[in-house]
Simulated scan of single mutants.
Amino acid sequence: MTNTKKFSLTMEARDHECDIQGVVNNAHYQHYFEHARHRFLLNHKIDFAELAKQGINLMVSKIEIEYKASLKAHDQFQITVEPEKVTRLKVCFLQKIYNTQTQELMAIAKTTVVTVGKDNKPLRNSPLEGLF
């Protein structure tokens, strides 16, 4: 089941994120995707940090990133976030990064998240259920 509400966040690539080739290092894309997921959750009244204080953790169990093109320093880009319910225990966040000037698709991520409790076992009553 896909949530029809898409979320997007605009960011800018910073010069210190670039490698010797002059493009944003691939590891930074994971940070971009993570930041957008957290903002998406806050937008849906799910506070990642507050949950962690309660012993409820949204743990990444799998992430796939497909790089299509390279961002460069000071490129502005938009990250979209769309959750998809995989199972009762898993949610996949489908995310895309677009260069806002060219509208070019830069990267696609599929991040699977499982909600776990203090005992590190999956919780059946995930706060992510409210997204669907």
Results as ranks from 00 to 15, higher is better:
30 Q>F: 11
31 H>N: 09
31 H>T: 12
32 Y>I: 01
33 F>V: 08
33 F>T: 03
34 E>M: 00
35 H>R: 07
36 A>Y: 11
36 A>F: 01
37 R>K: 07
37 R>H: 04
37 R>M: 03
38 H>T: 15
39 R>Y: 03
40 F>G: 10
41 L>V: 03
43 N>V: 01
43 N>Y: 09
45 K>V: 08
46 I>E: 14
46 I>S: 00
47 D>S: 11
50 E>H: 12
50 E>Y: 01
51 L>W: 01
51 L>E: 03
51 L>K: 07
53 K>R: 15
53 K>F: 04
54 Q>N: 08
54 Q>W: 00
56 I>G: 01
56 I>N: 03
57 N>M: 09
57 N>L: 08
58 L>A: 10
59 M>C: 10
59 M>W: 08
59 M>L: 14
59 M>E: 04
60 V>N: 00
61 S>T: 14
61 S>K: 07
61 S>N: 10
62 K>E: 06
62 K>Q: 07
63 I>K: 06
63 I>S: 11
64 E>V: 01
64 E>Q: 08
65 I>Y: 08
65 I>C: 10
66 E>S: 15
66 E>Y: 07
67 Y>H: 03
67 Y>P: 00
67 Y>L: 07
67 Y>W: 02
69 A>W: 07
69 A>V: 01
69 A>F: 03
71 L>N: 12
71 L>Q: 10
72 K>M: 11
72 K>S: 14
74 H>N: 14
75 D>L: 06
76 Q>K: 15
76 Q>V: 10
76 Q>L: 04
77 F>M: 12
80 T>S: 15
81 V>T: 14
81 V>Y: 03
82 E>I: 13
82 E>R: 14
82 E>S: 15
83 P>E: 04
83 P>W: 14
84 E>A: 12
85 K>S: 09
86 V>I: 13
87 T>W: 09
88 R>Y: 14
88 R>K: 15
89 L>R: 12
90 K>T: 13
91 V>H: 05
91 V>F: 10
91 V>I: 12
92 C>T: 11
93 F>N: 05
93 F>W: 04
93 F>R: 02
94 L>R: 11
95 Q>D: 13
95 Q>W: 02
95 Q>N: 13
96 K>Q: 10
96 K>P: 04
97 I>N: 00
97 I>D: 02
98 Y>W: 02
98 Y>F: 10
99 N>C: 04
100 T>Y: 06
100 T>V: 06
100 T>H: 00
101 Q>D: 01
101 Q>C: 08
102 T>M: 04
103 Q>I: 04
103 Q>Y: 12
103 Q>D: 12
104 E>W: 02
104 E>L: 05
104 E>V: 01
104 E>G: 00
105 L>G: 11
106 M>P: 03
106 M>F: 00
110 K>N: 08
111 T>C: 13
111 T>L: 00
113 V>W: 02
115 T>F: 05
116 V>G: 02
116 V>Q: 00
118 K>L: 07
118 K>C: 07
118 K>R: 11
119 D>S: 09
120 N>V: 06
120 N>P: 09
121 K>F: 10
121 K>L: 07
121 K>G: 04
122 P>E: 02
123 L>Y: 08
123 L>H: 06
124 R>H: 02
124 R>W: 03
124 R>N: 12
125 N>G: 09
125 N>V: 07
125 N>H: 10
126 S>Q: 01
126 S>V: 09
127 P>G: 02
128 L>M: 07
128 L>D: 11
